[in-house]
Design a protein around this nucleic acid. Structure first.
Lengths: 348, 348
DNA sequence: CTGAAAGCGCTTACAG
DNA sequence: CTGAAAGCGCTTACAG
């Protein structure tokens, strides 16, 4: 990447891009030879290679990815679709994806769709159009994965799974983690435990719900002991819903929030009502985000390593690209429960 | 985007991608006509257009962006380089960039470089190679912007400015905001105020420092009243540095943290030393992130609208693409000071 | 070991 | 209004 100013190429003064043809001419070889010298595949004598490489450097030659990809019918780009870049969970995921893509020599095309399904499909179409090498997504339906697979594009579903059996996936043991948390709450003596959750139809919500219910049953509690409250995934709206829940006469003594957004909403609702944690209310949740160790008491939570999930998803995609016929694999990662001060014995 | 299963195209069964040539054949027209019908430029009779469009739908035709871009010598992709996707400020920025790119019909290629300069340049090279329509970056040096501009690629610098005068930029009034915060602290009666900052050579750090110093001087305080402490941008390391600062005999009565990471470090250091805020220490900072209204007392801070910065940067880039010869513009956005409970009169 | 030629899938003057 | 042809910048068999 020589930044030569020899040929009158100055700072900020656009110079026309050199093509391989020009490099070849400067080096006194044919286009084919230049290509072989630069890409490293095919025979070239050592001195010719050096001459070509030097010419390329002098001309500040950058290969045209469009042309190369068009010819080769693949690009070194991975398409990524995540739900919401404002949510710390997806951010950590995107961060892991981004770092691992870079390490593997791929660029990342990122699309976040604020939870709008139509945008998910639009992004997928863009990815098909640019012939990405593969797509990693947090799906909102089975449709998008199927659409991409239909074009022969490898897909990895992360966090949630819709195209079970059709493509690879990286998920967390949601059922197990939810079970453990609920069991811990019941073990502390709670008899009215609310699960606050935004959806129960995706694998994430479904499994968290089922782990919750199983733990209630296993603790010998009646099903009514497990109160399930749903809310949109929005702090303000969820806060209102939860405030209502906590104001009931038979309000729960413990809340299990299914993710960090609902945890924040629960925490703010308790604050708003003057309910102290953990004396008047125990709070446990999913996702370990920064504020959870900054408030007092710190929040008991299920820590999902979203960065590691992202990295794993990229590696899984690389494997799939290498071995397209391998059967679909689902990698389930363990999540650890961090017991902190927000959960305690009930006082009523 | 018909998902026809008519032609034996089943779920998950890859079918070969249709080309425009095939669409043309199916519609019984020439390749040129198909192209005009599908792109909408050039003459086509209404019925021919319909026939072509229907053929395209039936074949699930998706235009090949590579081929189109190669021919047209531009892509509908914007390259974005941000420092660190783990930092909420850059995340909000990326979120704004992503949304606005989508609205404008562009895809976003994103690279985060954990603060490593070499990676910034690598990402830039990838962008040149893929002929992105433009690049938006939070630069770490003048080099990358110059490199890109040298290839005639429009560049917008965000947050910080290195290629002043050479390219467009979107920044915040760092000097003004830092001045206002420091002035407020001095106005409360603080006589030993520390600025904790990670760098003072980029425009961000330089301007925040200068606003700080000016306010100290204007308040009639001696320069020693303004203590400047630098630290790496890392919570754990900064916390150690700040803990040492706060343990000094003549420790400051107020800390102004130059960003959210250093604010967290300061907050944790105070916690660690058992210093109560705001009684024993006033804390003000830059960046309004979620935890700042969840801890108690809430933190006084300068709210930068990073999402709006991102959106503005995309719009500015679009303008530049439309009018390449327009003189370079720097857009400076105001930042608002949110006074909250973490700042009060000193008690010593 | 090197070079001429075909071709990836489009767009776009140009001729009809 | 439509079609044949050239060409974007590469890679890759193939012939020498």
């Amino acid at each position: 990447m020589a930044r030569s100013t020899k040929a009158g190429i100055g700072v900020g003064v656009p110079h026309p891009r050199a093509t391989m043809k020009e490099v070849a001419k400067a080096a006194g070889v044919s286009l084919s030879t230049a290509s072989r010298a630069l890409t490293g595949r095919g025979y070239v004598s050592a001195d010719v290679r050096d001459r070509v490489k030097q010419a390329a450097a002098e001309l500040e030659y950058v290969p045209d990815a469009m042309a190369r990809n068009l010819r080769q019918q693949v690009s070194r780009v991975i398409g990524v679709i995540v739900s919401d870049l404002r949510d710390p969970f997806y951010v950590d995921l995107a961060s892991g994806l981004s770092q691992q893509c870079r390490r593997r020599g791929y660029a990342m095309m990122l699309s976040d769709n604020g939870g709008v399904e139509k945008r998910e499909l639009e992004a997928a179409e863009t990815f098909v159009s640019s012939r990405v090498a593969g797509v990693i997504l947090t799906p909102m339906s089975r449709e998008v994965s199927e659409y991409l697979l239909g074009y022969g594009i490898p897909v990895v579903e992360v966090d949630r799974q819709f195209a079970d059996g059709l493509c690879d996936a990286v998920v967390v043991d949601n059922r197990g983690a939810a079970f453990k948390v609920t069991q811990a709450l019941a073990g502390l003596g709670h008899r009215r435990i609310a699960l606050v959750i935004d959806e129960i139809t995706w694998t994430t919500g479904r499994d968290r719900l089922s782990g919750f219910k199983e733990a209630i049953a296993e603790a010998g509690l009646p099903p009514e002991a497990g109160i399930v409250v749903t809310s949109k995934l929005d702090v303000a709206q969820a806060q209102a819903v939860i405030a209502k829940l906590l104001s009931r006469k038979d309000s729960p003594t413990a809340v299990f929030a299914a993710n960090n957004v609902l945890a924040e909403a629960t925490w703010r609702a308790a604050e708003q009502l003057g309910k102290t944690i953990p004396d008047q209310l125990s709070l446990a949740c999913f996702d370990d985000v920064r504020w959870m160790t900054m408030v007092s008491p710190a929040i008991t939570t299920v820590a999902q390593d979203a960065v590691a999930m992202g990295e794993t998803a990229v590696d899984q995609l690389m494997e799939r690209i290498r071995k397209p016929s391998r059967p679909a694999c689902t990698i389930m990662m363990a999540a650890t429960m961090e017991e902190r001060g927000s959960t305690a014995r009930p006082t009523r």
